[in-house]
Amino acid sequence: MHLTGEQFIAAPPQRVWEALIDPGLLAPLIPGCRSMSGNPASGYDIVAERSVAGVEVSMTGRIDLSDIRPGEGVRLHASGEAGRFGAARGTARIVLMPEKEGEREGTRLGWDLEAQTEGLLATFPRLVVESVARRVAHGFVERFAAAIEGREARRGWLSRLKGR
């Protein structure tokens, strides 16, 4: 599976970078995240739960960083185990570029993600898994930008309908 995207964030690259490596800021923004700990040098441990095609999946995972360029970008190497459901692995390249959007100065955060699933997770229809992954990635980046900018994240139509 391959996903790409970008998001303008009204904050300087260094501020975006500091937020990007802060597990205290990131954990509440990751859908289903129960805990996240660590640092850029030693990596991060994460526990999350997510519903995929109506099935609750609990994962324990690890995120290691390489090609660390503070204020410019990083490469993330993630792996997660979901017990009897299998595993997921992926690599993401994140790039931070100074940019001006209208009158606002800020950062263009770009990402390029390659991921694969194993075991029972790999038997879920590819389009379902890609749809969930795309929704999670875009939702995370929108919430991340909102947190840095000090605003409330936009909610999807289903969340608005449910009042969440």
Rank of each mutant, 00 (worst) to 15 (best):
M1F: 11
L3E: 09
T4Y: 03
G5L: 10
E6P: 01
E6L: 05
E6C: 07
E6G: 13
E6R: 14
Q7T: 14
Q7Y: 03
I9D: 02
P12A: 15
P12G: 11
V16F: 07
L20P: 01
D22G: 11
P23Y: 06
A27V: 05
P31C: 08
C33I: 05
C33M: 09
R34V: 11
R34C: 00
S35V: 05
S35F: 05
S35W: 06
S37R: 14
G38L: 08
N39P: 02
P40W: 03
A41S: 14
A41G: 02
S42F: 00
Y44D: 07
R50Y: 04
S51F: 00
V52Y: 02
V52P: 03
V55I: 15
V57M: 08
M59T: 13
M59I: 12
T60W: 01
T60C: 10
G61D: 07
R62I: 06
R62D: 10
R62M: 08
I63G: 07
S66W: 01
S66P: 02
D67S: 13
D67A: 15
G73K: 04
G73E: 06
V74T: 10
L76W: 07
L76N: 07
H77C: 07
S79E: 14
G80C: 09
R84Y: 00
F85H: 08
G86Q: 11
A87G: 15
A87E: 10
A88Y: 01
R89L: 09
R89Y: 09
G90W: 01
G90S: 06
A92P: 03
P98R: 11
K100E: 12
E101V: 07
E101A: 15
E103W: 03
E103T: 13
E105M: 10
E105C: 05
G106F: 04
T107L: 08
W111A: 10
D112S: 13
L113Y: 04
A115G: 10
T117D: 01
L121R: 08
L121D: 07
P125W: 00
V128S: 08
E130K: 14
V132A: 12
V132Q: 03
A133C: 09
R134K: 15
A137E: 01
A137H: 04
H138G: 12
F140G: 08
E142A: 15
R143M: 02
R143Y: 03
A145N: 03
A145T: 04
I148V: 13
E152Y: 00
A153F: 02
R155Y: 00
G156E: 11
L158K: 12
L158E: 05
S159K: 12
K162S: 13
G163T: 02
G163L: 04
G163D: 05
